[in-house]
Design a protein around this nucleic acid. Structure first.
Length: 615
RNA sequence: GCCGACGUAGCUCAAUCGGCAGAGCAACCGCCUUGUAAGUGGUAGGUUACGGGUUCGAUUCCCGUCGUCGGCUCCA
């Protein structure tokens, strides 16, 4: 779970967050829960090492909704082991051990942890002053401290509870075991990570477990099947999505809406093929730095072609098809471009991480003097789009220049980076600065959204590119009659249609607002004799642009209502003798509300209003 | 890719110690003509993911492949 990684948790709670964030909120690191979880992690390590005295322990931080601890153990842990460890933890907690902190010298620490290679590595890092316990660089040299409770000692900066009795043994639960590389480096030792959760009271634990169950119910993979939105076929291949008619309808509505917005926003639409010659990717540099993510070449008449992992080279070729004047700029080429990227099998995840996806991609070419406004505009545009789909909580990230790996010169990076920052401030979105996290070719803004389980997924990305204009030798003729290098910005706002749909499905838990619902209304006859009237009504509603189905099955009305509810159809229109005689429909909403009979016109008015207000 | 778990009907899940593979829902065919979350009877549905091994006999034990799930790493 990426969102629960310590790097993330630390970054989120400690790094710079704009003044728009609620600064009043207690920092997680200062909270009781943080201490409880941190201490529970120590107790867990104690229980694990009792069971495996030859085991090595590494780090065990609190995370967003619990804690984990990584171990190197002689064998793989089983579910039974977890139960035993959990049981032992409860016993230890009841023994009321005090947590005692001692600040010690590096040499003393090395002595205490002489049989613990991972701890020794951490101590070296701390002593050198270069890195903290997670391997992140530090500004100043930290003190080295240990925490002892009972006969267990751990290298740790705290904080902890005073006493294990402050942790309710019934509010602690071990969740699962997972593999994790030492310091997150796949070239290093694979460790066993035990995830646990801890709360103040058993009721809070229950609540958390209930929330997890709820999250599973809104998992887009489950809803995708239940609502018949999409599937993945083993025969087609993993990470390749098949959109069913209902999912296809939602996607079409999303795309149509976005296309219309793009048109209003000054974009021009272009189309480009799925493959391009090796030479194109040589020029773009993808074969140099992106090859691991590209599929093997296709040979055509002795030439190698590659399936596109990105659309940019094609858009650049369109730019280059003419000599461009400063008067032509800015140019904004948009394309719903389908790209294919090789993703390692273990990382695929429903719609959120796939191998083939369609980006709402565009490339902006502009003069330096237009740059700030273009950035402002595109960020604003992106936020408006996301808001239109009901998203309100964004987490924005500004990635700045990596000191070691960057295209162009440091000076070149300054203005765009500042323009990105200013745009974020003007847009009044909370953002965090990821210092040195930019790709080599330019600074960027990413906007991420959370899925039902709290994992963050990047949707919007707005990336400056100092690299491709050089590599393709892009120019425009300036007022001075001389060629100049344009600025280039890559941007995908919804990101990819697949990922966006995944997040969208979970956001609404499958109950799409009326304007997005694949089926907006289902007509339910009480008896077959009402069908003729129902067909007339259906025709009227369809003529008015509504997406309507008739449930003609030989089932009772109750069963049809139940099925419509489960399909999360916004309107159920029940028709019996009364409605036929009155020229009405009886409206039931998926909320369970029952507004009752109304005329077809009155219903249409309501539907139009709901669509307008995006409910 | 790596660590671990898992893979039985379209879906959710059973199957004792290795002994003829089963249920509910869905589907299909009837009956019922229904008033706000499951009316009722029947039929069909399987080389237990795939391939190999052990065994008189494998859904069950072993090996491999593929896939899924939870993490790690990476990203739209």
């Amino acid at each position: 779970m990426k969102a629960l990684a310590p790097e993330w948790a630390r970054a989120f709670f400690t790094k710079e967050v704009s003044s728009m964030a609620e600064s009043e909120k207690e920092r997680y690191e200062d909270s009781d829960l943080y201490r409880i979880r941190h201490s529970a992690a120590h107790v867990m390590a104690q229980a694990v090492l009792e069971k495996f005295p030859q085991g090595k322990y590494t780090i065990g931080p609190p995370i967003e909704e619990g804690f984990y601890y990584d171990f190197e153990l002689p064998r793989a842990l089983t579910p039974e082991d977890l139960e035993a460890i959990e049981k032992r933890m409860r016993a230890i907690l009841k023994e009321k051990h005090r947590f005692v902190k001692q600040v010690i010298s590096a040499d003393d620490a090395r002595h205490i942890f002489k049989d613990q290679p991972y701890k020794l590595e951490l101590i070296d890092g701390l002593a050198a002053g270069g890195f903290d316990e997670y391997g992140n660089p530090l500004d100043e040299k930290p003190e080295i401290s240990i925490y002892t409770h009972g006969d267990f000692v751990d290298l740790c900066r705290g904080p902890h509870v005073e006493n294990t009795a402050q942790i309710n043994p019934e509010a602690v639960k071990l969740m699962n075991v997972a593999g994790a590389y030492w310091r997150g480096d796949e070239h290093k030792q694979m460790l066993q990570r035990i995830y646990g959760t801890a709360w103040k009271t058993p009721a809070e634990l229950e609540d958390y477990l209930w929330r997890l169950e709820e999250a599973k119910r809104r998992d887009h993979r489950r809803l995708g099947r239940e609502l018949d939105l999409f599937s993945v076929s083993e025969d087609v291949g993993p990470g390749l999505i098949l959109w069913h008619p209902k999912g296809g309808m939602v996607r079409k509505i999303v795309e149509d809406f976005c296309r219309a917005e793009h048109e209003k926003g000054g974009y021009e639409f272009v189309y480009s093929p799925h493959i391009g010659k090796a030479n194109l990717w040589e020029i773009s540099g993808h074969l140099g730095w992106y090859k691991e993510n590209m599929y093997a070449p296709i040979e055509i008449e002795g030439q190698q072609y590659f399936l596109k992992p990105m659309n940019c080279p094609f858009h650049i070729e369109i730019y280059k098809s003419h000599i461009r004047s400063y008067r032509d700029l800015p140019m904004r080429f948009a394309e719903w471009g389908t790209v294919y990227r090789f993703e390692r099998s273990g990382v695929l995840h429903g719609l959120l991480r796939v191998r083939g996806f369609t980006q709402d991609d565009a490339h902006l070419f502009c003069r330096p003097d237009q740059m700030a406004e273009e950035i402002d505009r595109v960020l604003q545009f992106s936020l408006n789009l996301l808001r239109a789909f009901g998203f309100k909580d964004f987490q924005a990230y500004l990635s700045t220049r990596n000191a070691e790996k960057f295209a162009g010169s440091a000076e070149l990076w300054e203005a765009p980076t500042e323009a990105l920052r200013q745009a974020l401030i003007r847009a009044e979105v909370p953002y965090q600065i990821d210092e040195g996290e930019a790709t080599f070719y330019g600074p960027k803004i990413d906007i991420k959204m959370r899925d039902a389980l709290g994992r963050e997924w990047q949707l919007t990305t707005i990336q400056f590119d100092f690299n491709l204009p050089e590599r393709f030798d892009l120019t425009y003729i300036g007022e001075d009659g001389q060629p100049h290098r344009p600025y280039m910005i890559h941007r995908a706002l919804l990101g990819s249609m697949e990922r966006f749909m995944g997040v969208l499905i979970e956001h609404y838990a499958g109950a799409f607002p009326v304007w997005l619902a694949p089926v907006q209304a289902v007509l339910i006859p009480i008896a077959d004799r009402h069908l003729e009237y129902i067909r007339e009504v259906a025709a009227k509603l369809k003529a008015a642009g509504l997406r309507v189905e008739i449930d003609e099955r030989s089932e009772r009305m109750n069963a049809k209502i139940r099925d419509a509810q489960n399909q999360k159809i916004p309107y159920m229109l029940v028709v019996g003798d009364q409605e036929v005689s009155q020229g009405q429909v009886a409206l039931r909403l998926r909320s369970g509300e029952n507004p009752g009979a109304l005329s077809v016109e009155a219903f249409l008015d309501k539907a139009r209003q709901d669509i307008q207000q995006a409910v």
